[in-house]
Design a protein around this nucleic acid. Sequence first.
DNA 1: CAAGCCAGTAACTAAACGGTTACTTTGTGG
DNA 2: CCACAAAGTAACCGTTTAGTTACTGGCTTG
Lengths: 226, 226
Amino acid sequence: MDKAQSRVRGRRRSGEGGAERPAQRDPERTRASILAAATKEFAENGIGGARVDAIAERAGTNKRMLYHYFGDKEQLYLAVLEEAYIGIRSAERSLHLSDLEPEQGVAELAMFTWKYFLDHPEFLSLLGTENLHRARWLRQSTRLKELHSNFIDKLAGLLDRGKAKGLFRTDIDPLNVYLTIAALGYFYLSNQHTLTTIFGRDLADKANIEAWKQHIVHVTLSSIRR
Amino acid sequence: MDKAQSRVRGRRRSGEGGAERPAQRDPERTRASILAAATKEFAENGIGGARVDAIAERAGTNKRMLYHYFGDKEQLYLAVLEEAYIGIRSAERSLHLSDLEPEQGVAELAMFTWKYFLDHPEFLSLLGTENLHRARWLRQSTRLKELHSNFIDKLAGLLDRGKAKGLFRTDIDPLNVYLTIAALGYFYLSNQHTLTTIFGRDLADKANIEAWKQHIVHVTLSSIRR
DNA sequence: CAAGCCAGTAACTAAACGGTTACTTTGTGG
DNA sequence: CCACAAAGTAACCGTTTAGTTACTGGCTTG
């Protein structure tokens, strides 16, 4: 009803305070800064708790730009998720399991995974959020389906060499080995807050973290040895 | 401005359609039904994504009752979390580890934990939500701090018997053993959607679920044996 | 060098949300 | 049998939220 009237109201008092922030005029930087801010916001609050205004503020920009570059909140979340997966998959590529002795290779993979989880808590949070929603966005993503690396194949090769040498049991499954490593790391870190509260041991303590790394290596190796 | 006016507007047209739902008049049932509905809603959507209106509707009641019995959304969430923990702790009490041979006892604990996780997906979701918020509500809860059972003590007793018999290594830590069992179960189930999507193996498949149970028992036992 | 396009801003809007109010219904004890 | 308290209802409210509009200004290019 009074739409036309309110429409008329002035929008911008040009030259009020001058440029508070030197207008960046740098699309790549703005986009990256929104993505980084969104990663934090989604990781801290989940998809339901994340606030679009908060993301814009954290990025030092405003909502318009966010919608400009990413469409809407859900597409922004998908971009965050894709970037997170790209991060771990490309880090994995720097692991050269084929150059190592079988036992050493499994130990390296376990320590690498542990360190990656430790250094990227936001990745763990995003995984948790995505699973809460039954992988709704991950399943949509065509980009990520292409990304599925030959990671398990490389691990299978390593394990086969161990089997041939008589070091490992012949019935072990590469995916199970990887799931074991990931499970031990993921659970310890992602559930550390409830566990610390309930069991009264500070899992974030440096010594405990180092001990758990050794524990993962020990558990993984002892479960696959003949 | 027109507040007074709108205030005057009639509220209830008594005797319009008659009783659509036979008014329960059963406080306990109403409370329980709200709690059950809230458990589902929080487990499916997290705390940020859960909707108070949705909880009321699922419970077959209305928001007023929810606020009547639980105060506000956060207190309702806390009640849900407390009930979930009470559930697993009391189920744990039915386990009589002290009657079993050490190896059999560890296997029973592993299988019990797996089955509990499998049967209570909402418990896993709530744990995830609570950890996302750094155990903010769990830490507040005085009820749950009293609840912390002698569970680890019972497990320690079992392991000590195994050590005395020369079956288990003497340096194993009861908490680590429990964390190992919980980690393997939790990760497989709570992350099944992303894992299934990424690795192309249906983790929800019955045979795979049974195989993972055996895997947990095997991994746990092989990591503690001398 | 002007025209047009793209980066950027802030005020705005409709809808959704958590929470409250005003009121009705029903079982129970004096 | 009626008064009162507790259970229950639905409309309502103020605020927050995702998303949009109207506009500015600078860089590039024909």
